[in-house]
């Protein structure tokens, strides 16, 4: 049956706001390789390659936040997402599925896809690591509301590419935590949010840092901020953007 989708963007093909450098792809590799490349090129003393070297240097040394001071389109919804600390603004393209459990489909300028459901990451596509077929066979418990509350254990199953990893089962548990001081939350006081940690108890993600969510105090189920590592070197954060209006009062 046709998907109950609400197309959020004005039209397709999706006109994603062009923000220079707002794609992730392989930013981290670029960061790691670029210094070596610059050193090598200096040693090679090749003068006519200078412009590429200069551009690389400015990208590495003087990288600025492409999400700052950007004129936003009031007709679009944005999510500020970081990968490995590098920020980008994603635009909401679609909402798929029934209203009760709709999945938000967010797009980057490079056409990468991030799926969120109830503020929780349930898929990526077009990135260097992609989660697919994410499901919760037993459903998802409600967000803990007390300061020290712990939820029931629940299951998550997902597949991952590259690697042909299929049907990886994990058990998770939610726990309320104090506002962290080391999150990727931007331009917002962590104390204004209620924080929950989602820890993998068994399964492949057990060695990874727990996911964390910052929820609105006014609307207990509204996730304002989330962070999760899909692999050791692949950690995402997402935050409603702009900050103004992202947190219900």
């Amino acid at each position: 049956m046709p998907v109950a989708a609400r197309s959020v963007s004005p039209s397709l093909p999706l006109k994603v706001q062009a923000l220079p450098g707002s794609g992730f792809l392989l930013q981290k590799r670029f960061q790691r390789v670029a210094p070596l490349a610059v050193v090598l090129s200096l040693l090679a003393a090749c003068s006519t390659g200078a412009s590429a070297v200069r551009t690389t240097l400015s990208g590495v040394v003087f990288e600025n936040d492409p999400t700052a001071n950007v004129a936003l389109n009031s007709k679009l919804f944005y999510e500020r997402v970081t990968l490995g600390g590098h920020p980008a603004l994603l635009v909401l393209g679609f909402e798929d599925g029934p209203a009760a459990g709709k999945t938000e489909v967010w797009y980057s300028h490079e056409r990468e896809v991030l799926r969120l459901q109830g503020g929780r990451l349930i898929g990526t596509a077009g990135m260097t690591l992609n989660w697919t077929a994410v499901s919760f066979p037993d459903g998802v418990p409600a967000w803990p509301t007390g300061d020290t509350e712990t939820s029931a254990v629940f299951r998550r199953r997902h597949s991952a590419e590259p690697g042909h990893l299929t049907d990886l089962d994990e058990t998770l548990q939610l726990t309320s935590i104090a506002p962290p001081s080391n999150s990727g939350l931007k331009d917002l006081d962590p104390a204004k949010l209620r924080w929950v940690e989602e820890r993998v108890l068994t399964g492949v993600g057990r060695a990874l840092p727990p996911a964390r969510y910052g929820l609105s105090r006014a609307l207990p189920s509204r996730v304002v901020y989330g962070e999760q590592c899909l692999a050791g070197a692949f950690c995402l954060t997402w935050q409603r953007w702009p900050v103004t209006g992202a947190v219900p009062e």
């Binding site: 490349a37 090129s41 040693l43 070297v53 990208g59």
Partner: peptide, 18 residues
């Protein structure tokens, strides 16, 4: 010889030569 293209995130038509 190594092309700049192999190591820089910005296209270049030049080579590094050692």
């Amino acid at each position: 010889n190594l092309p700049f293209d192999a190591v820089l995130p910005k296209s270049s038509s030049n080579l590094m030569s050692f």
